[in-house]
Write a protein that binds this DNA or RNA. Structure first.
Lengths: 129, 129
DNA sequence: TATGCACCTTCCACCGGTGGGAAGGTAAAG
DNA sequence: CTTTACCTTCCCACCGGTGGAAGGTGCATA
């Protein structure tokens, strides 16, 4: 099948598929006219990648996961440790965002939000040292 | 003062300060030798920007906030609405991350993490349609 | 057969927000 | 006078794509 078909079937945009080929995540064959030709296996790999990206795995971790996926001899501990590292990264991001959220919502609660210039939000931001 | 001084006093890296000048967030003067020359006011603006970035405001919102900060006639409602929009964006990111976190930690819990190839994490990722 | 349209190709540029480093000018200290 | 610590501009790289231009291909329709 051509890139358009595999794109709509996998949910991965055609541009992204070409990019994944560029960085060596997939290597589809070529038809005589130069068009990329995808087999069922490529489709599954792309769907796998799409799903892994949805879970927030960065590209390089997707590459590792894909290699493990393709390897019948893998040890599930390898997969698990990749996933656990990513979970830690997610947790770090969440707590950073929560910290921002907490400060910001406090400031918002302090701000009258009227036609006057006084504003605790700006005061906080300009609070120097 | 020169860029090094204003950098260490504001906590904003010199590289970032030059970038902020490029995109028009600040416009320091120049000494006769071509060095950027920063006044106290620039220092405060940079500290303001650094603090706003810490709270996760994207550059364009920082620009708006800086304009409001500089405007004596501002209405605090304007500031508040910028902050509220950003809070919504933060909340959206948090809930997206929490969703990832939830799926991922469930899968991790299901994975034996041993020397065998069977892995619910990979199974889930390869689950096509 | 000609035309149009949808699809495909490559290439280049851009996003945010820096970071790294090269190549060169300048100021101050030893 | 030399060293070193700054400063300057410039360009490349990162992540994970996205947008668009310019041009080739395949198929249906008039």
């Amino acid at each position: 099948m051509n890139i358009g078909t595999v794109s709509s079937r996998s949910g991965v945009p055609a541009k992204t598929i070409r990019y994944y080929e560029d960085i060596g995540l997939i290597s589809p064959q070529r038809s005589t006219n130069g068009y990329r030709y995808f087999e069922e296996k490529d489709l599954h790999k792309l769907a796998f990648l799409g799903r892994a990206r949805t879970l927030g795995f960065p590209i390089e971790e997707c590459r590792k996961l894909l290699a493990l996926y393709e390897d019948d001899q893998r040890e599930s501990s390898k997969v698990k440790s990749v996933a656990e590292e990513h979970l830690d990264a997610i947790d770090a991001k969440i707590s950073q965002l929560k910290e921002m959220r907490s400060t910001l919502s406090h400031l918002i609660g302090c701000c009258a939000g009227n036609e006057l210039p006084d504003c605790p939000i700006l005061e906080n931001l300009s609070n120097f040292e």
